[in-house]
Design a protein around this nucleic acid. Structure first.
Length: 151
DNA sequence: GCCAACGTTGGC
DNA sequence: GCCAACGTTGGC
């Protein structure tokens, strides 16, 4: 089993939205590095830290679980969709999605300033300078530390 | 709103 | 293939 961190702006889609929907398709990712994780590495049963970016403060808001591994991103194949990308024909998809299910919402989000204080997380991808990747791997050790901090 | 970091685009 | 210009991300 592997661990991941997905970023979302709460104004666009928050952990509360996921709690309401129960499951959702994580689609619309248009970055090749993130795409590779979605297509090749993220498997059902993997756990996902749900991160609120552009929030005050930004932080990890809860936990989700992957319920469907990589499949062609429907939003990229739908010409009427805002995130449509003509580069990917249905026969040779370029972009991928996974499905996740809400597991739990933390009592309080683990804020970025708080995470930065934790020595064991110093090497976490999220905390590296200029880390803009919206889908990131998380190590088992990092995940365990975060789970312990979560309320 | 500002701006640093980074990815992508496109001319050459 | 290089690299400048541009757009986006996301913390502050």
């Amino acid at each position: 089993m592997a661990y991941w961190l997905f970023k979302s702006e709460p104004g666009v889609y928050s952990i509360a939205d996921l709690a309401r929907d129960k499951t959702t398709a994580w689609e619309g990712v248009r970055n090749y590095q993130a795409r590779n994780f979605l297509r090749d590495a993220i498997k059902p049963g993997d756990l996902v830290l749900f991160y609120h970016s552009n929030a005050a403060p930004p932080g990890i808001a809860g936990l989700a679980k992957v319920v469907r591994g990589g499949y062609p991103d429907p939003s990229a194949l739908d010409p009427t969709h805002e995130a449509y990308d003509a580069a990917g024909a249905p026969a040779a998809p370029v972009w991928y999605a996974v499905d996740i299910r809400h597991v739990r919402t933390f009592g309080a989000p683990l804020g970025l300033p708080e995470l930065k204080k934790v020595k064991a997380l110093a090497k976490m991808a999220l905390l590296q300078k200029g880390s803009r990747l919206s889908v990131q791997p998380v190590t088992g050790a990092e995940f365990a530390v975060i789970e312990k901090l979560a309320t």
